[in-house]
Simulated scan of single mutants.
Amino acid sequence: MTELQLTQIRNYLLEKKLPIDILLEVQDHFVSQINDLQKEENLPFDKALEKTKKSWEIELKPYWNGGIDLIDRSKLLRETNKINFKVLVKKSLTFSIPVILILFFLSKLISFQYFEIIFVAFVGLIYFSPLINYLIHLQDFKLIKKYQNYVLVSIQEYSVLMIGGIYFYFRFITDGYKLAEVFSSFSPNNFNWDFVLGFLIVNAILMLSFFVIFSQKIYLQRIEKVKPFLQYLKPSN
Rank of each mutant, 00 (worst) to 15 (best):
W193R: 01
F141Q: 05
N133E: 04
Y232R: 09
D194C: 01
L179Y: 15
K234Y: 04
E41C: 03
E116L: 08
D21V: 05
I201D: 00
D72Q: 13
L143D: 05
M162G: 03
L93E: 01
E41S: 11
N84A: 11
R73A: 06
S236M: 07
P188K: 09
S185I: 09
E41R: 12
G198E: 03
K225L: 13
F191A: 09
L101Q: 03
G164T: 06
I117W: 06
K108D: 10
I126P: 04
P130C: 03
I163T: 12
P130E: 01
E59L: 15
V153M: 07
K227R: 14
E116K: 13
K17P: 00
S129Q: 06
N133I: 10
I213W: 05
V99R: 02
V226W: 08
K82G: 01
N35I: 06
S92K: 03
D194H: 13
V160W: 01
F141M: 08
R78I: 03
L14Q: 11
L60M: 10
S215P: 00
N65S: 13
F85D: 14
W193C: 00
S184L: 04
S107Q: 04
S236G: 03
S187K: 05
T52I: 10
Y232K: 12
L14I: 05
K53D: 07
V99H: 04
E59Y: 08
F186T: 02
S107V: 02
V26D: 08
L70G: 00
K47M: 12
K178F: 11
L24Q: 11
L70T: 12
Y169R: 08
S96P: 07
K145N: 14
L233F: 04
Y114C: 00
N65V: 11
H29R: 10
F122M: 06
F191M: 13
F183S: 01
K47G: 01
K75P: 01
Q33W: 03
K234W: 02
Y63I: 10
D46K: 12
V153F: 02
K146W: 04
I213F: 10
I22K: 10
F45W: 07
K61P: 01
V26A: 09
S107M: 03
L106C: 06
S154R: 03
V120F: 03
V160K: 07
N133H: 06
I117A: 11
T2N: 15
Q8P: 00
Y158T: 02
L6K: 15
K75Y: 15
F104I: 06
A48C: 07
S129K: 08
R10K: 12
M207T: 14
K217V: 03
I144V: 10
I9H: 09
K86Q: 12
Y114Q: 02
G198S: 01
N237W: 05
T94L: 15
S96I: 04
M162R: 14
L43P: 08
F85Y: 13
I163H: 13
Y127G: 00
L220P: 09
I126C: 02
K47D: 12
V182Q: 09
Q156T: 04
I97L: 15
N190A: 13
T94N: 08
N81Q: 14
L77T: 13
N42L: 12
P62K: 09
S187N: 15
L206N: 06
Y167N: 04
L220S: 07
L101N: 02
I83F: 07
E15A: 14
V196E: 01
T174F: 15
L49I: 06
S32D: 14
N42Y: 07
F85T: 12
K178M: 12
G164I: 05
Q8N: 11
L230V: 10
